[in-house]
Amino acid sequence: MKKLWDISPPVSDQSPVFPGDTPYAQAWSATLGPGCPVNVGKITMSPHVGAHADAPLHYGNEGFAIGAVDLAPYLGACRVIHAINKGPLIEWHHIAHAVQDLPARVLVRTYKRMPVDRWDGELAAFAPATIEQLAARGVKLVGIDTASIDPADSKTLDSHQVIRRLDLRVLENLVLDDVPEGDYELIALPLKLMTADASPVRAVLREL
């Protein structure tokens, strides 16, 4: 069988969230016992907890909710590019060594070890011009191992606005710690949430 890399962080009540966002919480609405044959949980969380796909609705009121987007960008040939400790913004020269004959999906690793249990207010993000150049080379989806493609303190979300204008898709909070640079098959399908601004994904890479 082809090797798989699970690039999704664990999701629990320890998962970091953007300050002010809804953390993960679980309760039991039914438990095994006399008169009840099953355990049934109840979950509350932001759709931006863990590995997730932003919907166009997240950064534009005219945009589609995540349940209405085309699934094709989230499935197919993908390149992982390392730009470790190059922040605060990933500039074109940080990834230029690996942009020949790009597939339609590009994931960028910025952490040596992704902090799955704490919020990082100094997270690395994409420079808007980097996304522009990726799109010019046919890229339809960009992903990153941080919580946002924009700086955590940004109020203008310039890279998200490039994504909106060029109709690209985005994955955030990926775990790329153990993934060598190179080409893979990406599988990271969002849930069919018809009014949501994002969706959790179970993101995996499969060797070609």
Rank of each mutant, 00 (worst) to 15 (best):
M1A: 13
M1R: 11
K2W: 05
L4S: 13
D6I: 14
V11L: 13
S12Q: 07
D13L: 06
Q14M: 11
P16C: 09
P16G: 06
V17T: 13
V17Y: 06
F18L: 11
F18Y: 15
P19T: 10
Y24R: 04
Y24P: 02
S29C: 09
L32K: 12
G33L: 07
G33Y: 07
G35I: 09
P37G: 09
V38F: 12
V38A: 11
V38D: 10
M45N: 09
S46W: 09
P47T: 13
G50Y: 02
A51I: 01
D54Y: 04
P56A: 00
E62S: 12
I66F: 01
G67L: 00
V69F: 00
Y74D: 03
Y74R: 02
G76R: 10
C78D: 03
V80S: 09
I81F: 08
I84D: 08
N85V: 01
L89Y: 13
L89M: 13
W92Y: 11
H94K: 05
H94S: 08
I95Y: 04
A96M: 10
H97Q: 12
H97P: 02
V99L: 06
P103I: 07
V106Y: 02
V106P: 02
V106M: 04
V108M: 05
Y111I: 03
K112D: 14
D120G: 04
G121R: 08
A125F: 05
A127Q: 11
A127C: 11
A127W: 04
A129H: 10
T130Q: 07
E132D: 15
E132R: 13
Q133E: 15
L134I: 08
A135E: 11
R137Y: 01
V142Q: 05
G143R: 05
D145R: 08
T146Y: 02
A147P: 01
A147C: 12
S148E: 04
A152S: 15
D153H: 11
K155Q: 14
D158N: 14
H160Y: 14
V162G: 09
I163Y: 05
I163L: 15
R164T: 03
L166D: 10
L166M: 14
D167R: 14
R169M: 11
V170E: 13
L174P: 03
L174R: 03
D177Q: 07
D178T: 11
D178Q: 12
D178G: 09
Y184I: 07
L186E: 07
L189S: 09
M194A: 08
D197N: 12
A198I: 03
S199H: 01
S199E: 01
R202E: 06
V204K: 04
L205Q: 03
L205A: 03
L205N: 02
L208T: 09
